[in-house]
Design a protein around this nucleic acid. Structure first.
Lengths: 228, 228
DNA sequence: CACTGAAGAAATACAGTGTATCGATATGAG
DNA sequence: CTCATATCGATACACTGTATTTCTTCAGTG
């Protein structure tokens, strides 16, 4: 029986694990946003049938949780900073950078508790930064306040970024000149303060605005922490 | 030709407008969350075919935008407060209350710029609160910082609330005792600060925690605003 | 080595989604 | 009364997440 007679051995299915699945899902999301992530497409990218994924996750939500946890690894700074302010700033900036790399993260940020290993590591790093302070409850309030701020700020930033991308104009340009609807609304005179803000406000870049807001919040936290 | 012979006149289609459509969508979302909102169900609730909606909106996203704008009307306080701090606090609390009434709002908050009439009115009210201060750019930074905070905080609160509801336990109880996975993770010793927080932290109620965080942020803003 | 049992993957199936297209139908104009 | 036009409903399509059913492949046993 020659080679030509013998059929090729049956192609064994590609081995799978959560890591590969999550990587494929993240790749899809990076390319086309969260809406591009479907179990079928993820599976296809791994040369597998859709149902195979259900051995590793039991629902699509779980896949999203895994994705979030995966990119949260990128948030952790390489080395621990001695200054608590800098530590918190690093975590905030890390989250922002990660969200800029993976814009879909903004859609999920704060959407549900992050309990995966990396999520816990981030929580640990955040709390550890304030370890020197005695009153745990104040520390927790501080952590929540800071992370509420940057969660919200990141979401807003990405939302604006997408809007700009959609219209091809910077938000400011669009508001001032090319948005017929908004121009009309402002012209009604019902929004004087808003109108002034739109016409007189400077277009500061997102990073600077994020940073100064963060600094303000950190100032506030500092004031509360140092008092026994 | 008797009445019996004559067919009833054809039932005229129910008149429709955006208001009715949005109201139906909000009702659905209030009952079953955002995932319960489908164009078919919205249309069905109005005794209309799904395609009819496309005369009033051209995409589902637009419907969501309309829903957000609609509930934003609930945010606006009945009367203008003289104190800017109180004004901002009212807006923050108003947003929180609205999100508690319409939990799906948390999923949309900060997701995209809110340019509807009510969204603009909220923006106007926010900016108007700080109208006395000269430097517009500082004012905008202040507004963004405060609303980033409460956007993030509200999202977190609702996320926790849902998690509690899903497990039937308060977050604290669950973390401490009944979450086998988390118990195991904490037992590894890799998360000392987090462990301490979980075991020693007090379970403060969400409203208080929201309020104190807000106060901190307002303190910070006050410090920056009063300086010329 | 043959055979059977179990496990795993694949195919099929289903109910539901957002939206495009098209035929019927009712309304207003002439 | 007729015709054009706008509007509504039905149908259709491509796709979704997931349950179920069928097929394949391998391990273990006689």
């Amino acid at each position: 029986m020659t080679v030509w007679d013998r059929p090729e051995p049956p192609t064994r299915p590609v081995p799978l694990d959560r890591e590969r699945i999550v990587a494929a899902a993240i790749a899809l999301a990076d390319e086309g946003g969260l809406e591009a992530v479907s179990l079928r497409k993820v599976a296809a990218r791994l040369k597998a049938g859709p149902m195979r994924l259900y051995g590793y996750i039991s629902t699509k939500e779980e896949l999203l949780d895994l994705m979030v946890d995966e990119v949260q690894a990128e948030i952790l700074p390489e080395e621990r900073s001695s200054d608590w302010r800098e530590a918190l700033r690093n975590l905030a900036n890390g989250t922002r950078q990660t969200a800029l790399r993976h814009e879909w993260l903004a859609d999920l940020l704060g959407g549900r508790p992050t309990l995966g290993p990396n999520g816990l590591a981030v929580a640990e790093a955040t709390l550890a930064a304030l370890d020197d302070f005695a009153d745990i409850d104040t520390v927790m309030r501080a952590v929540e306040t800071v992370s509420s701020y940057f969660t919200g700020a990141i979401r807003r930033e990405i939302a604006n970024l997408r809007a700009e991308r959609a219209t091809g104009l910077s938000r400011h340009e669009w508001q001032r000149a090319s948005g017929p609807y908004l121009t009309r609304m402002l012209a009604t005179g019902r929004f004087p303060a808003l109108t002034k803000a739109v016409y007189d406000g400077t277009d500061v870049d997102a990073e600077a605005s994020f940073a100064t807001g963060l600094d303000w919040v950190l100032d506030a936290v500092a004031a509360k922490l140092t008092r026994p």
